[in-house]
Design a protein around this nucleic acid. Structure first.
Length: 573
DNA sequence: GCCGTTTTCGGCCCGACTGTTTTCAGTCG
């Protein structure tokens, strides 16, 4: 897909325009880049089928950008972009990832010292050449060297929500305990429950901000102070995550929380709505002229703007503001709504604990049913179950069911391997006796898109396969999804009445949010499963719920948010 | 360059912090 390539080009063009101090165009290019990055359609196909006119229908694509898309499709390059690169031949993306270095400085440093990349930059800084430039000084030079240090160590980008969350809870507790802190909330992408986060945003209400800031920047995890002020401080931690702390007065709490929760795109839209209605919205409040309107909570602000409350998970500017205006937002599945878990491994294969221990742990977390879904024989390294072994497992399940009768129901299930040709690793004679059949791919990740799609479609056709587990196979930051045509899979799921999984494991979260939304739109049901390999893993369900909420799922879309009988009736048998 | 029941021109989100300045530009979110 050329969408990503064009997004990158437009993003860089925005930077070049910023270097030249061109007004407004940079934002236009940046918006176009962001939209193309998320855009689902195939630009080449859209152009071939509908011409330039079809491109103009894409938000933030106008005449200028459409022409450049067409130029790229037809010639493989964008002339204006090439010209910009010649005028300032610097490694933009590399230099931009040095914290504190923006487009203006990059241009200036190139013009004065010929700096084209981080290596040049380091050399010049070490030679004390930067401090001599107008507008720079000794401190700027030191800062650049420090930033280069972080640049070199950078683990590249984002942290899993599941990795950051425990650390954040610790921070939260520690800061909330301070006498000076009246109220504390973690905002930003963590509050929106994004699968990975770039940094941590904390919002505090306090009348003694200096003392809070002082404590904050001196915490043991802090390796560098990026900024420290009365209302805003920012630090880098040993684990590479940056933390921004903002202190606000009580009367700004709603507006501040809204602002710092984001997303940026959601905020921009809200401010536009505010302007349309004659208000001004900032992190300090909602204003009519110079008069500040009462807006202590987010709800107040949405209401004044004529909008229904928008859950943080929806604030990505993917249509939520429009629906809030028309009072048509979905009522999202809640964090306490799950009644069961349909993917659980045990010590029979690669899980840590027995069926009994897993049942007890699920019961303690308020679940009413779980499905035991150990691997099958093709996955030999886990000791996958064959026809004989799985029958033996049923006896143990029967025993545990007796023990917990009336409290929690243990369903007989499987995570059955989908073999290379799309056939299943257990015979129908076994599958037909199971309560829940999950099927998933654990081999031949590199098939072509067509082969992989056909393979998974064949599994969907089985009259016994109830759920496809982790349908795209990605492991965030480690393994790309295998090539499948997700639209065809969702379509086939709809036709065959197959459920698709929203796997809750923090580095899987598979399906991802936008796929879940496609399922919901298509009327395909999902199951939010922990994929638990130990008793503690039931706690991971919250990440799956979060992902489902980001995919606009309601309780009605999630079969394991239903009572057992209703859920079972939804399965194929 | 994009966009529009204020629609084909004239707007475009807004403020904190830093380092270098004597009033502000650059960067960030």
């Amino acid at each position: 897909m050329i969408n990503q390539e064009l997004a990158k080009i437009f993003k860089e063009m925005a930077e070049y325009l910023l270097m030249d101090d061109v007004p407004f165009k940079p934002q236009a290019y940046e918006r176009a880049a962001m939209n193309l990055e998320m855009f689902d359609g195939d630009l080449e196909r859209i152009y071939k089928e509908g011409g330039g006119k079809a491109l103009l229908a894409i938000p933030s694509v106008g005449k200028g950008i459409a022409d450049k898309i067409i130029e790229y499709i037809e010639t493989g390059h964008v002339d204006e972009y090439e010209k910009m690169r010649k005028a300032a031949p610097v490694n933009l993306s590399e230099l931009r990832s040095v914290e504190g270095l923006g487009p203006k400085h990059i241009r200036f440093l190139y013009e004065k010292l010929g700096i084209r990349n981080v290596k040049d930059l380091e050399k010049a800084a070490r030679a004390k050449k930067i401090r001599a430039l107008p507008g720079f000084g000794e401190k700027s030079e030191e800062k650049i060297l420090k930033s280069i240090g972080f640049f070199k160590k950078r683990s590249d980008g984002r942290t899993l929500l599941g990795t950051a969350a425990p650390f954040v809870r610790l921070l939260e507790k520690r800061l909330a305990n301070l006498r000076e802190v009246e109220q504390l909330v973690v905002a930003g992408s963590i509050r929106r429950r994004k699968e990975t986060i770039g940094d941590i945003d904390i919002l505090i209400i306090s009348r003694e901000p200096e003392r809070v800031m002082d404590f904050f920047v001196k915490m043991p995890e802090v390796v560098a102070i990026l900024g420290q002020g009365k209302t805003k401080s920012s630090v880098k931690t040993a684990m590479g995550l940056n933390i921004d702390l903002r202190v606000l007065p009580q009367k700004s709490y709603g507006a501040g929380l809204l602002y710092f929760t984001g997303s940026k795109k959601h905020n921009v839209i809200l401010r536009e709505v505010a302007i349309e209605r004659g208000y001004k919205l900032s992190e300090y409040g909602l204003f009519k002229g110079t008069r500040q309107l009462p807006a202590e909570t987010e709800e107040d602000i949405y209401k004044t703007l004529g909008l229904d409350y928008i859950e943080p998970e929806l604030r990505e500017n993917t249509g939520e503001v429009d629906l809030a205006q028309r009072h048509k937002l979905p009522r999202l599945v809640g964090y306490g709504d799950l009644q069961g878990d349909l993917q659980v491994q045990t010590e029979w294969t690669d899980g840590k604990h027995s069926i009994d221990v897993m049942a007890k742990a699920a019961l303690e977390r308020g679940l009413a049913y779980i499905a035991i879904t150990d691997h099958t024989k093709h996955l030999a390294m886990t000791g996958g179950l064959d026809e004989k072994k799985i029958v033996r497992q049923w006896k143990e399940i029967d025993l545990v069911n007796k023990k917990y009768a009336g409290k929690i129901k243990i369903l007989k299930g499987t995570e059955c391997d989908i073999l290379k040709d799309g056939s299943l690793d257990l015979p129908d004679s076994i599958l037909s006796q199971l309560d829940v059949v999950g099927a998933s791919i654990h081999s031949y990740f590199k098939l072509t898109r067509k082969e992989q799609t056909e393979r998974i479609l064949r599994a969907l056709q089985s009259p016994y396969v109830d759920i496809i587990f982790h349908p795209t196979g990605r492991v965030i930051g480690r393994r790309d999804p295998y090539e499948i045509d997700i639209d065809r899979v969702i379509d086939a799921a709809k036709k065959t009445g197959t459920i698709l999984e929203a796997n809750a494991y923090p580095d899987r979260l598979d399906l991802k949010d936008e796929h879940i939304r496609k399922c919901i739109d298509a009327g395909v049901k999902i199951a939010i499963n922990s994929d638990a390999h130990s008793s503690a893993h039931f706690d991971l369900l919250e990440y799956g719920i979060a992902q489902a909420r980001r995919g606009w799922a309601t309780k009605n879309d999630v079969i394991n948010a239903w009572p057992l009988a209703k859920m079972a009736a939804m399965l194929k048998k």
